[in-house]
Simulated scan of single mutants.
Amino acid sequence: MKTILILSMTLFVLACSKTTLLSQSTEQPSAVEFIAHEHFTTPSDSDYSFYYDEYRQVFAINAGNPKLRDRFIRATKKLDANFISGEYLLTLNTITEEDGESSYQVFVNDELIATVTNPETHKAFQLVQLQIGKTELKAGDVLTIAANAVTNGKIPEGDGTAYARGRWQSLLLTPVQ
């Protein structure tokens, strides 16, 4: 009788352990925010890269350089092996600028999934959340954010007009339940 009780208890413990392991492997992912200057890389050997605007804590384009205007500049982030695969809602956090409405392209593995544009504003440097939409993501995927420095022609500067710098703060991934 003692042996049967011990064997039963052992089987019960093993069954509970197996259930725990199964529940851990099917765990739901939580939202993750990738900060531009902390998680994304921009080519350091290229003339076409973002700089870190420390005051606003965002990536930005040096619009004072004419060759960086009206073109898309890219930064990338590879999802590491611990990333939990699934469907996510992507939100790009950008900063408004009075001198232009920058556009942003979002790519997954070099496939364009969305292009969004900052709204026109009369109050600069406000956080805006641009909805990218839902997409399937898995470990190893490469996320790319591209932004452009553009002018809306409304802010005089020298012989022309000022340019927005395509400032962006982060990419938020929220799991879809």
Rank of each mutant, 00 (worst) to 15 (best):
residue 3 T to M: 04
residue 4 I to F: 12
residue 4 I to E: 10
residue 5 L to M: 05
residue 6 I to T: 06
residue 7 L to R: 03
residue 10 T to H: 12
residue 11 L to Q: 03
residue 11 L to P: 00
residue 13 V to Y: 12
residue 14 L to C: 11
residue 14 L to N: 07
residue 15 A to P: 00
residue 16 C to G: 07
residue 17 S to A: 12
residue 19 T to L: 13
residue 20 T to E: 02
residue 20 T to Y: 12
residue 21 L to D: 05
residue 22 L to G: 08
residue 22 L to D: 13
residue 22 L to C: 12
residue 23 S to P: 02
residue 25 S to K: 01
residue 26 T to P: 00
residue 26 T to D: 09
residue 27 E to D: 00
residue 28 Q to Y: 08
residue 32 V to A: 09
residue 35 I to T: 06
residue 40 F to N: 03
residue 41 T to E: 05
residue 43 P to I: 01
residue 50 F to V: 06
residue 52 Y to M: 07
residue 55 Y to I: 09
residue 56 R to G: 00
residue 62 N to W: 13
residue 64 G to M: 01
residue 66 P to T: 13
residue 69 R to F: 14
residue 69 R to E: 15
residue 73 I to G: 00
residue 77 K to L: 07
residue 78 K to R: 09
residue 84 I to N: 03
residue 84 I to V: 13
residue 92 L to P: 01
residue 93 N to W: 13
residue 93 N to V: 12
residue 94 T to W: 02
residue 94 T to I: 01
residue 95 I to Q: 13
residue 98 E to I: 10
residue 98 E to H: 07
residue 98 E to Q: 11
residue 99 D to T: 08
residue 102 S to M: 01
residue 106 V to H: 04
residue 107 F to M: 10
residue 110 D to E: 15
residue 115 T to H: 11
residue 116 V to T: 13
residue 117 T to F: 06
residue 124 A to Q: 14
residue 126 Q to E: 03
residue 127 L to Q: 11
residue 130 L to Q: 08
residue 130 L to H: 07
residue 131 Q to H: 12
residue 132 I to D: 11
residue 136 E to A: 08
residue 137 L to A: 09
residue 137 L to G: 04
